[in-house]
Write a protein that binds this DNA or RNA. Structure first.
Lengths: 192, 192
DNA sequence: AAAAAGTATTGATTTGGATCAAGGGAACGA
DNA sequence: TCGTTCCCTTGATCCAAATCAATACTTTTT
């Protein structure tokens, strides 16, 4: 249940056995069925989710009812509406499970306690968010720079695992295309 | 020369006088003329720039020669090609000054030394990047969700200072439009 | 003070992706 | 296992933004 978490954690910083036990005590396991919400837009995001197993997505819904996916999360990833989590304001994103999932939840109080008591946790979160930031910067470049073909190719190259596990129309949403366009893009690309 | 830096720093974490002096010793002031590069694509990004004065941009250039601006930085902002800075690989972005600028540079060795010796520095960088991450998430939502009108309105609402100091065609690039389209968008919006 | 470079606007035209619409097939749930 | 929902594809049409192009104005540079 905690393998993924400590695998990723100790890749970034080291932890003693006691420290691991201490951290474990602050994590709350949670299972989610496919389609079940971890967070709904408008609610306050009260915890960060670490994905032990399964797949989730964060998305917003525009006026027309179209879902815009802003993040996927597979095993080893963190997912939350960070702004809502940090400010306790209403979330602008919803998060739900694309597959049945097992999560470890870090509540706000646990987060603060860990930041206070365990320097490695601050380093872990700093490095995690730095990576997420860099990935997001590239994503913006990809979105504003390139053709649909390139965007899709970038996505496949970067996240082959996601491409295999997630419905195509969600990938379309993530890279800013309609499902129809993505379908045609794939057809065009297959021809080469 | 250091006012902005310590103003922003101490908004996030507290620093004693000695600590401030210590930090000062690790910062390298640098002046940049308009159009001058801080970093060129292909070079390794060797320092993070903190903007004391002036305005800069980070951008990439696509095959067609079109510049795609991925970040602006005014007084109080940090700017770098973080990926290149952290990995020492070739930068994918160029950074230059839009106006004459005064910077404080944090070299890699300074950065590492500060992380090692000054816990507040880690907190400062963690909070800075968290804010940057959240802003970027919203930017993605804005880019993939909305009409050009909304995107421009979002930009103006969020960065009125930038809108006043930066040429319009750079804003167009930042929000993913051609200069012509932005010009027409503005015209349409003025009519309301 | 003149020349050059940079900036914004407007018009005409093209085009690529969105939209609207329909069908077939697979996966899921009762 | 049957019915419903979900998912992907394909076709036809439309439209908004890109592109191409010309001009005027402003700011820098020399």
């Amino acid at each position: 249940m905690y393998e993924q978490f400590f695998k990723h954690f100790t890749e970034k910083v080291s932890l003693s056995e006691q420290e691991m036990e201490y951290v474990k005590g602050l994590l709350k396991p949670k299972k989610l069925r496919r389609k079940q919400y971890l967070l709904q837009e408008g609610d306050v995001c009260r915890e960060i989710g670490f994905v032990e197993k399964g797949a989730l997505r964060a998305y917003s819904v525009d006026e027309g009812g179209t879902e815009r996916i802003i993040q996927f999360a597979l095993e080893g990833w963190l997912i939350a509406d960070l702004y809502s989590f940090l400010t306790a304001e209403a979330a602008t994103y919803s998060i739900d499970a694309i597959e049945d999932a097992e999560l470890l939840l870090i509540s706000r109080s646990a987060h603060e306690e860990l930041l206070r008591n365990l320097p490695q946790y601050e380093t872990y979160t700093r490095l995690s968010i730095t990576n997420a930031y860099i990935a997001m910067q590239r994503r913006i470049t990809s979105i504003i720079s390139t053709t649909p073909e390139d965007r899709y190719a970038d996505f496949i190259a970067k996240y082959p695992q996601i491409a295999q596990r997630v419905p195509q129309h969600m990938i379309a949403s993530y890279i800013g295309l309609t499902p129809e366009t993505l379908s045609r893009v794939r057809k065009r690309m297959a021809g080469k």
